[in-house]
């Protein structure tokens, strides 16, 4: 589903954020991406989203070769990916409903179908009663769940999350992770960047670790490794 082959990313300043990364995330898999800040986690996710292009190597996401993707093609790649951000990226001048509906508006859904899907997504994250609220009226955990509802409302085959539990207490963080696991159970390919090792070490998913732009650990379940 997501295939890196010797992918490097050098930024104009000369900083090499990723060095010859090769990895494959099969369809329907859920993986964690860890590493210290600056290790290249965000760069890796940005490459998948085509927010950046590889400097060398090949990256194929759901059939799209990111290096060769035309800029006109980028929006259509992004429609196949749901993204959850640490800072939610919600629009504060719109209701929860309108925030979640945004991807469907872009896809061109009819209002009736749109409302049905938005409610289904909000129900999934447990916020059905909050559709008329504004994000500012919600707690941090609720805002994050609105972000997740928006990421999955159009049922993308790929779900990316960048530090989705960064600002949440352990209990809320666990809830968010369970939510991701549920999406994975129904076949969504999930990739979560997180440095919250205490949380993800308890979860039975593969872990990719980046250090200084290199992939130092990328196969097997975490439990099989003696990982600190």
């Amino acid at each position: 589903m997501i295939e890196f082959a010797d992918v490097s990313k050098r930024y104009p300043g000369g900083h090499e954020a990723l060095k010859e990364v090769s990895l494959e995330i099969p369809r329907g898999e859920m993986m964690f991406l860890t590493g210290r800040s600056g290790a290249g986690k965000s760069t890796l996710l940005k490459l998948v989203m085509a927010m950046e292009r590889p400097s060398s190597g090949t990256l194929v996401v759901n059939g799209h070769d990111i290096g060769k993707l035309s800029s006109r093609g980028i929006p259509f790649l992004r429609r196949e990916i749901g993204v959850v951000f640490q800072n939610h990226q919600l629009l504060f001048d719109r209701t929860v409903f309108d925030n979640v509906a945004l991807p469907l508006v872009i896809h061109g859904y009819q209002p009736r179908e749109m409302a049905r899907r938005v409610r289904a997504a909000l129900d999934k994250v447990g916020l059905l009663g909050k559709e008329r609220s504004y994000p500012i009226q919600l707690s941090g955990g609720e805002q994050q769940r609105v972000g997740i509802a928006r990421a999955v409302v159009h049922k993308p085959p790929i779900l990316l999350a960048d530090e989705p539990t960064g600002n949440l207490d352990p209990e809320l963080a666990g809830e968010i992770m369970r939510l991701f696991a549920q999406f994975n159970q129904v076949g969504v390919t999930v990739l979560i960047a997180s440095h919250d090792l205490s949380l993800i070490a308890r979860l039975p998913y593969r872990m990719l670790t980046l250090r200084d732009g290199r992939l130092i650990q990328g196969v097997g379940r975490l439990a099989e490794h003696d990982h600190a």
């Binding site: 369809r27 329907g28 759901n62 059939g63 799209h64 070769d65 006109r72 093609g73 259509f76 429609r79 196949e80 896809h107 061109g108 049922k155 085959p157 129904v186 076949g187 969504v188």
Partner: peptide, 19 residues
Amino acid sequence: ADVRRADGRRVEGRRSAAT
């Protein structure tokens, strides 16, 4: 069911594919 449909579809990377 939706995801299965997405899985079953051969990915061609064309713009119309997603929508």
